[in-house]
Design a protein around this nucleic acid. Structure first.
Length: 462
RNA sequence: GUCCCCAUCGUCUAGUGGCCUAGGACACAGCCCUCUCACGGCUGUAACACGGGUUCGAAUCCCGUUGGGGACGCCA
């Protein structure tokens, strides 16, 4: 690549930030990084009805949380409306676009007739060659492009290859609405051209838009960008991911306890491959990412794999960082002493968790809420005879000098030998007594971290 | 309805005419490790949608069928 690429993410701020948008952002950012180019952000807020500042903020927040940084100030598309109108009028002057005075009702009627007749639903060009004198009074016209009616439009897509469509299939799309505001196609092309975008990497739902957008490039004599259309992310039914069927917002994944680095790795591999590599660091991703590796077919979102990846990145994550992150997932904030215990026990805790939610759950052992609550399984373990035994063990514990896991383990092993018991026969009741549960990190480690006083207190509380 | 795109284990994928009795990862099952649960290690189940070609040879190329997805707005 001789010139460094300029990529962009162009989401419309009409709600939350979709996970598919996040992946598109990742691919754009990686591609730009790989080739030392730029990754720009443009907020497509020309739909004044649906665009909200909150949704715009959600996009900034989502990208920031994911660790995807864009270059420079985001472009707010609506602010460029005058420029878009200017281009539309220029095309009219050059005879490449024209005014159309059809009412929305008239167009709807036309489509209805076409549909009933089994015809393709397309604008029939009824104003293409009429002069403005025929304009009905009081009707504000739209501007339509005078699209070529013969030949074909060809897209060379970096993912899909060459795609051709006959121009007769395309109609004269609206460039400028009757209120003078630009439509999507016009603003996208004008902005991409003005921003110097060289590579348009976007969702496959834009594939068929490309033909129309190319016509604007051709009319204006602008150099067209390289296109790369990404396969959709679909749900387990194979359909477009939508809010009706579960989580789709980046924020939802944060709330479910996923780490941004895990989501990045997951999204990277969802629709792109590099041999047999599965765990891919940010550095490797930036060095390896290429358009050739993008797959053509839609990819299903799979929580199992995301969970596995998240578990992996949890292992790699810094213990103090994790102790901070799990606070959002705990009913009450742990005290500073509890937090210290959690950090000490984190190595064992995190190997047992797939998400921050599970990690927070596990960390509860070190949060000293009194009295200790025993779950059903723990109660079952602690029958009367067993409680007697544990109390005897507690007396032994009181004599342990170094309150450290190895010493405690030795103490319990000796106790077990003396009573001809298997270690498990004592360790499990000990676990139940110390944690109120039957599942925890290694119990001697838990006892060590809990400390002598707390541990003995819990044993005596039986 | 019209147009466009897609098609390898349940899922994500490797594979670009012989290296494929199709590889990896996740999930699943079993075993080992083990104080519980995990981690880890080992083993296993499991796929080229179908039908025609082309070729000495096809998961790989071509055509068709079927199935899936997307687009057809004065939304983006």
């Amino acid at each position: 690549m001789t010139l460094s690429p300029v990529c962009r993410l162009a989401p419309s701020p009409t709600g939350y930030m979709h996970i598919g948008t996040a992946r598109t952002a990742l691919y754009n950012q990686l591609f730009a990084k790989r080739h030392h180019g730029k990754f720009l952000l443009r907020i497509e807020d020309t739909d004044r009805e649906r665009s909200t500042p909150e949704a715009t903020q959600a996009i900034f927040d989502g990208l920031t949380w994911l660790g995807l940084h864009w270059h420079g100030e985001p472009v707010m598309q609506f602010s460029r409306a005058p420029r878009h109108a200017e281009v539309a009028h220029q095309l009219v002057k050059e005879g490449k676009a024209y005014f159309c005075y059809c009412s929305p009702e008239e167009l709807a009627e036309m489509r209805e007739e076409q549909k009933n007749a089994g015809q393709p639903m397309r604008y029939d060009g009824r104003w293409r060659n009429r002069s403005a004198d025929e304009a009905p009074a009081g009707v504000k016209p739209v501007i339509r492009i005078k699209a070529p009616q013969e030949g074909e439009t060809v897209v060379i897509d970096a993912v899909l290859g060459e795609i051709r469509v006959k121009n007769e299939q395309l109609d004269d799309m609206i460039l400028l609405r009757s209120d003078g505001t630009p439509t999507f196609h016009l603003s996208v092309v004008v902005d991409d051209a003005d921003m110097g975008i060289t590579h348009v990497i976007r969702g496959n739902d834009h594939m068929t838009n490309t033909f129309r957008q190319l016509q604007i490039y051709h009319a204006m004599g602008w150099k067209e960008p390289v296109y790369a259309h990404l396969p959709m992310i679909v749900n387990d039914q194979g359909q477009k991911l939508s809010k009706r069927h579960g989580a789709v917002g980046v924020r939802d994944f944060a709330k479910m306890g996923y780490l941004p680095e895990a989501l990045r790795n997951y999204l990277l591999r969802l629709g792109w491959g590099h041999g047999d590599d599965e765990i891919i660091s940010d550095e490797q991703a930036a060095a390896w990412f290429n358009l050739e590796g993008i797959s053509k077919s839609p990819a299903r979102f799979d929580y199992n794999k995301l969970n596995a990846l998240n578990a992996h990145y949890l292992q790699l994550a810094d213990n103090v960082r994790l102790s901070e992150l799990i606070k959002d997932f705990m009913p009450t904030a742990p005290s500073s002493e509890d937090t210290q215990r959690i950090i000490k026990g984190m190595a064992s805790l995190k190997s047992r968790a797939k998400t921050l939610v599970e990690l927070a759950e596990g960390a509860k052992v070190y949060c000293l809420a009194q009295p200790l609550i025993y779950d059903e399984k723990a109660k079952a373990v602690l029958d009367a005879a067993t409680v007697e035994m544990v109390k005897k063990l507690a007396e032994r514990f009181a004599t342990v000098n170094d309150w450290l896991a190895p010493a405690l383990e030795e103490c319990v092993r000796n106790f077990a030998d003396e009573n001809s018991l298997k270690l498990g026969k004592i360790a499990q009741p000990l676990r139940a007594a110390l944690t109120g549960t039957t599942v925890s990190p290694p119990i001697f480690e838990v006892a060590e971290i809990l400390g002598r006083d707390v541990s003995l207190k819990r044993l005596h509380a039986l």
